[in-house]
Simulated scan of single mutants.
Amino acid sequence: MSDERSQGVDFGELGDELENHDYPATPDELTEEYGDRTVEYNDGEERFGDVIEGVGVDEFESAEEVFETVMMMVGGEAADEGHSDRGAGTAPDEETDSF
């Protein structure tokens, strides 16, 4: 995940470190190990430890869970790139009849 921007969040080298971490892991363990790393998004950046502090999760089962949680925590700050999902998937299914 290095140098990869996912949904407006750039984990940089932290992404690789999280992927290589042994799971399950608690937020406290991840904060102790990687808390000073920076997560970047469109409108700025934030310390990883600050992002996952108090997330209400007892334990992460995988790096993917960590990534998803971070993306939720930074919310609109990361996702607002002029991209809109409005209307996506709302077209009626033309092949389905109710008869």
Rank of each mutant, 00 (worst) to 15 (best):
E53M: 09
M1P: 14
M71I: 14
E46S: 11
A63R: 02
E45F: 04
P92F: 09
A25T: 01
D16M: 08
E4P: 11
G82Y: 00
S84P: 06
A78C: 05
G82F: 00
T96D: 15
M1Y: 02
T90M: 13
H21K: 07
E61Y: 09
D93K: 07
Y34K: 04
G89T: 03
G8I: 00
S2F: 00
H83N: 13
E81S: 15
L14Q: 02
V51I: 12
G49R: 04
M73Q: 15
D22H: 13
Y34D: 01
T31I: 14
E29R: 07
G12K: 01
D28V: 09
L18D: 02
Y23R: 04
E4M: 14
E4L: 13
V70T: 01
E94A: 15
V57P: 05
G76H: 12
V57I: 11
D43H: 11
P24K: 08
S6P: 10
S84M: 10
E13Y: 07
H21C: 11
R37K: 15
D93I: 10
A79C: 14
V57R: 14
E19Y: 04
Y34L: 03
D3K: 12
T26P: 02
P27S: 10
A63N: 04
T90N: 13
T96Y: 15
V39T: 01
D10A: 13
P27A: 09
G44V: 06
Y41R: 04
V57K: 13
G75M: 08
L18A: 05
R5A: 14
E4Q: 13
A91N: 10
T38F: 06
E81G: 14
L18H: 02
V9H: 00
L14P: 00
E13K: 10
Y41M: 06
F67M: 01
Y34M: 04
G76D: 10
E29G: 05
G89P: 03
F48Q: 00
D93R: 09
G12Y: 02
E19K: 11
N42T: 15
V9W: 00
A63Y: 04
G56S: 04
F67T: 00
G44Q: 09
M73G: 08
E32G: 12
V74K: 06
M73C: 08
E33S: 08
Y41G: 03
V51W: 04
R86Y: 13
E61A: 12
D58P: 03
E81L: 10
Y41Q: 03
I52F: 06
S2N: 08
L18P: 00
A91K: 10
G35T: 02
T31K: 09
E53H: 13
G44S: 07
G54I: 09
D50N: 06
V55E: 10
T69D: 09
E40N: 06
A79V: 12
T26E: 06
S62M: 05
L30G: 00
G54H: 08
E4K: 12
A63F: 04
Y34I: 01
E32C: 07
G35A: 05
A91F: 12
